[in-house]
Amino acid sequence: MNIVVLAKQVPDTRNVGPDAMTPEGTVNRSALPAIFNPEDLNALEQALRLKEQNPGTTVTVLTMGPDRAAEVVKEAMYRGADGGYLLTDRAFAGADTLATSYALSTAIRHFAPYVDLIIGGRQAIDGDTAQVGPQVAEKLGLNQITYTEEILSCDGKTIRVVRHIDGGVETVETELPCVLTVNGSAAACRPRNAKRVMAYKKAEVPHLTCADVEADLNQCGLAGSPTKVKHVENIVFKAKESKQLTGSDEDINGLIQELLASHTIG
């Protein structure tokens, strides 16, 4: 099987420090550590398991971003991926999810025209949109299974998957090729393998440009993005008049009595 894993390098929005925002209210990306998008690691694990079960399978990682995003390709190789590409070009800058999925789909057509399975995380922590997976599937004319929890079987022709749905789970089956997106609650990714780290430490991640993948410039980057950010507001809550209490018995007792007296509780 020919598997492509979609991975994104993201700023670690879970550990936002005080210098994460510039005084002008824009995001100061350089102040945030760049990490492998967590759910893309769950996706990588699913791909590596299929590789173990189906001899002859190759796992290729595709990421889009600036030069340093190549780190996620290498990280994936340390954990078991066969190789990967960094899709990078000034023309891709400012892409929304639609322009991103267009660029990714042209790259997949370019280096993996006979792909069997495309696997990515459900969503990235910097946007939380969960849109790129299904949008890539539609651009390539492929079926999709989102919210994957576990791959039950995959024989190279048919895949059977357990997915989370609202209020429950569902087992579905479909034919390959298709696109899967994987939840963060799926199996965690295996760690780096020391031998692989030694072997690939100096490996060069090949770059693909807009011209390499023959992408239409009108559909890339800012130009290809139908959504525009009209306005961005830095978060400052409107302060309420709040009563300040301590954890003392007296204060807590007073609060409970007050809430009971006003029939707020009880």
Binding site: P11, T13, R14, V16, A20, M21, G25, V27, I125, D126, G127, P226, T227, K228, V229, K230, H231, V232, E233, N234, I235
Partner: peptide, 15 residues
């Protein structure tokens, strides 16, 4: 809200 909740964005689709 966007970007880990540090900003609130207003998005439009003009065309």
């Amino acid at each position: 809200p966007a970007f880990g909740g540090n900003i609130v964005a207003t998005i439009v689709n003009p065309d």
